[in-house]
Lab assay of single mutants.
Amino acid sequence: TSIVNVSSSLNVRSSASTSSKVIGSLSGNTKVTIVGEEGAFYKIEYKGSHGYVAKEYI
């Protein structure tokens, strides 16, 4: 489990790309479970499925 480190919110994306669809967002200090990594993104558990967040904010 890791913590989201942002002051406002962090986009959760459908794939490991800044141009991919935003499927949701997480607020600062939210706990997330990392299940993998791809480039500059972590794959996380998100709403019963998976999403991707930028590593620099975790």
Rank of each mutant, 00 (worst) to 15 (best):
Thr1Leu: 08
Thr1Cys: 15
Ser2Asn: 13
Ser2Leu: 14
Ser2Tyr: 08
Ser2Lys: 13
Ser2Ile: 15
Ser2Val: 15
Ser2Glu: 07
Ser2Pro: 10
Ser2Gly: 15
Ser2His: 15
Ile3Leu: 10
Ile3Asp: 07
Ile3Trp: 08
Ile3Glu: 08
Ile3Val: 11
Ile3Gln: 09
Ile3Gly: 10
Ile3Met: 11
Val4Glu: 07
Val4Ile: 11
Val4His: 08
Val4Ala: 10
Asn5Arg: 13
Asn5Phe: 06
Asn5Gly: 09
Asn5His: 12
Asn5Trp: 06
Asn5Val: 15
Asn5Ser: 12
Asn5Thr: 14
Asn5Asp: 09
Asn5Leu: 11
Asn5Lys: 12
Val6Asp: 07
Val6Ala: 10
Val6Thr: 12
Val6Trp: 05
Ser7Phe: 06
Ser7Glu: 10
Ser8Tyr: 09
Ser8Met: 12
Ser8Thr: 14
Ser8His: 15
Ser8Asn: 11
Ser8Cys: 15
Ser9Leu: 10
Ser9Lys: 13
Ser9Asn: 11
Ser9Ala: 12
Leu10Gly: 06
Leu10Tyr: 09
Leu10Glu: 04
Leu10Met: 09
Leu10Asp: 03
Leu10Phe: 09
Asn11Gln: 15
Asn11His: 14
Asn11Ile: 15
Asn11Tyr: 11
Asn11Thr: 13
Val12Asn: 00
Val12Leu: 03
Val12Trp: 01
Val12Arg: 00
Val12Met: 03
Val12His: 01
Val12Pro: 01
Arg13Trp: 15
Arg13Val: 08
Arg13Cys: 07
Arg13Thr: 09
Arg13Phe: 15
Arg13Gln: 13
Arg13Tyr: 15
Arg13Lys: 06
Arg13Ala: 04
Arg13Pro: 01
Arg13Gly: 04
Ser14Pro: 02
Ser14Gly: 08
Ser14Val: 11
Ser14Met: 14
Ser14Ala: 15
Ser15Asp: 09
Ser15Thr: 09
Ser15Cys: 11
Ser15Gln: 13
Ala16Glu: 02
Ala16Trp: 03
Ala16Asp: 02
Ala16Ser: 06
Ala16Lys: 02
Ala16Gly: 05
Ser17Tyr: 06
Ser17Ala: 07
Ser17Arg: 07
Ser17His: 10
Ser17Gly: 06
Ser17Thr: 09
Ser17Gln: 07
Ser17Lys: 07
Thr18His: 15
Thr18Ser: 13
Thr18Val: 12
Thr18Phe: 15
Thr18Met: 15
Thr18Lys: 13
Thr18Leu: 14
Thr18Pro: 14
Thr18Asn: 14
Ser19Gly: 10
Ser19Lys: 11
Ser19His: 12
Ser19Arg: 11
Ser19Asn: 13
Ser20Pro: 01
Ser20Arg: 02
Ser20Leu: 02
Ser20Ala: 14
Ser20Asp: 03
Ser20Thr: 03
Ser20Lys: 01
Ser20Cys: 05
Lys21Ala: 13
Lys21Arg: 13
Lys21Met: 12
Lys21Gly: 08
Lys21Glu: 13
Lys21Asn: 10
Lys21Val: 10
Lys21Phe: 08
Lys21Gln: 12
Val22Glu: 03
Val22Arg: 05
Val22Asn: 03
Val22Ser: 06
Val22Met: 06
Val22Ala: 06
Val22His: 04
Val22Gln: 04
Val22Tyr: 05
Val22Asp: 03
Ile23Gly: 00
Ile23Lys: 03
Ile23Thr: 02
Ile23Asn: 01
Ile23Cys: 05
Ile23Phe: 02
Gly24Leu: 05
Gly24Val: 04
Gly24Met: 06
Gly24Trp: 05
Ser25His: 13
Ser25Gln: 15
Ser25Thr: 15
Ser25Trp: 14
Ser25Arg: 15
Leu26Asp: 00
Leu26Glu: 01
Leu26Cys: 05
Leu26Phe: 05
Leu26Met: 06
Leu26Gln: 02
Ser27Cys: 14
Ser27Trp: 09
Ser27Phe: 09
Ser27Glu: 14
Gly28Val: 13
Gly28Arg: 14
Gly28Trp: 13
Asn29Val: 07
Asn29Ser: 09
Asn29Phe: 14
Asn29Gly: 15
Asn29Lys: 11
Asn29Cys: 15
Thr30Trp: 07
Thr30Tyr: 08
Thr30Gln: 12
Thr30His: 08
Thr30Pro: 04
Lys31Thr: 12
Lys31His: 12
Lys31Leu: 13
Lys31Val: 14
Lys31Pro: 12
Val32His: 02
Val32Pro: 04
Val32Gln: 01
Val32Ser: 01
Val32Met: 07
Val32Tyr: 06
Thr33Cys: 12
Thr33Val: 14
Thr33Leu: 10
Thr33Glu: 07
Thr33Gly: 07
Thr33Phe: 09
Thr33Asp: 05
Ile34Pro: 02
Ile34Phe: 03
Ile34Cys: 04
Ile34His: 00
Ile34Asp: 01
Ile34Val: 09
Val35Asp: 02
Val35Thr: 07
Val35Glu: 03
Val35Phe: 05
Val35His: 03
Val35Lys: 04
Val35Arg: 04
Gly36Gln: 04
Gly36Ala: 08
Gly36Trp: 04
Gly36Lys: 04
Gly36Phe: 03
Glu37Pro: 02
Glu37Gly: 04
Glu37Leu: 06
Glu37Ile: 08
Glu37Arg: 05
Glu38Ile: 07
Glu38Met: 07
Glu38Gln: 08
Gly39Asp: 07
Gly39Gln: 04
Gly39Asn: 07
Gly39Trp: 03
Gly39Met: 04
Gly39Arg: 04
Gly39Val: 02
Ala40Met: 10
Ala40Gln: 12
Ala40Ile: 09
Ala40Val: 08
Phe41Arg: 00
Phe41Gln: 01
Phe41Met: 03
Phe41Lys: 00
Phe41Trp: 13
Phe41Ile: 01
Phe41Ala: 01
Phe41Gly: 00
Tyr42Gln: 02
Tyr42Arg: 02
Tyr42Ala: 04
Tyr42Val: 06
Tyr42His: 04
Tyr42Ser: 03
Tyr42Cys: 06
Tyr42Pro: 02
Tyr42Phe: 09
Lys43Leu: 10
Lys43Thr: 04
Lys43Phe: 05
Lys43Gly: 01
Ile44Met: 01
Ile44Ser: 03
Ile44Arg: 00
Ile44Trp: 03
Ile44Pro: 02
Ile44Glu: 02
Glu45Gln: 09
Glu45Thr: 06
Glu45Gly: 04
Glu45Trp: 09
Glu45Val: 11
Glu45Cys: 12
Glu45Ser: 06
Tyr46Gly: 00
Tyr46Lys: 00
Tyr46Pro: 00
Tyr46Trp: 12
Tyr46Ile: 04
Tyr46Thr: 01
Tyr46Gln: 00
Tyr46His: 04
Lys47Arg: 09
Lys47Glu: 14
Lys47His: 09
Lys47Leu: 12
Lys47Asp: 11
Lys47Gln: 13
Lys47Cys: 14
Gly48Ser: 07
Gly48Trp: 04
Gly48Asp: 09
Gly48Ile: 03
Gly48Gln: 06
Ser49Gly: 15
Ser49Tyr: 08
Ser49Met: 14
Ser49Trp: 07
Ser49Phe: 09
Ser49Ile: 12
Ser49Thr: 12
His50Ile: 15
His50Cys: 08
His50Asn: 05
His50Gly: 04
His50Trp: 15
His50Lys: 04
His50Met: 08
Gly51Arg: 01
Gly51Ser: 02
Gly51Glu: 00
Gly51Met: 02
Gly51Trp: 04
Gly51Leu: 02
Gly51Pro: 00
Gly51Ala: 08
Tyr52Ile: 00
Tyr52Val: 00
Tyr52Met: 01
Tyr52His: 01
Tyr52Asn: 00
Tyr52Pro: 00
Tyr52Glu: 00
Tyr52Arg: 00
Tyr52Cys: 03
Tyr52Gly: 00
Val53Thr: 01
Val53Asn: 00
Val53Gln: 00
Val53Ile: 14
Val53Arg: 00
Val53Lys: 00
Val53Gly: 00
Ala54Cys: 14
Ala54Arg: 12
Ala54Val: 08
Ala54Ile: 09
Ala54Lys: 14
Ala54Leu: 15
Ala54Gly: 09
Lys55Met: 07
Lys55Ser: 04
Lys55Arg: 06
Lys55Pro: 00
Lys55Phe: 03
Lys55Leu: 03
Lys55Asp: 00
Glu56His: 09
Glu56Ser: 08
Glu56Leu: 08
Glu56Ile: 11
Glu56Gly: 07
Tyr57Leu: 11
Tyr57Ile: 07
Tyr57Cys: 15
Tyr57Glu: 15
Tyr57Trp: 09
Tyr57Phe: 14
Ile58Phe: 13
Ile58Ser: 04
Ile58Lys: 03
Ile58Arg: 03
Ile58Pro: 03
Ile58Tyr: 05
Ile58Cys: 06
Ile58Asp: 03
Ile58Met: 07
Ile58Val: 10
Ile58Trp: 07
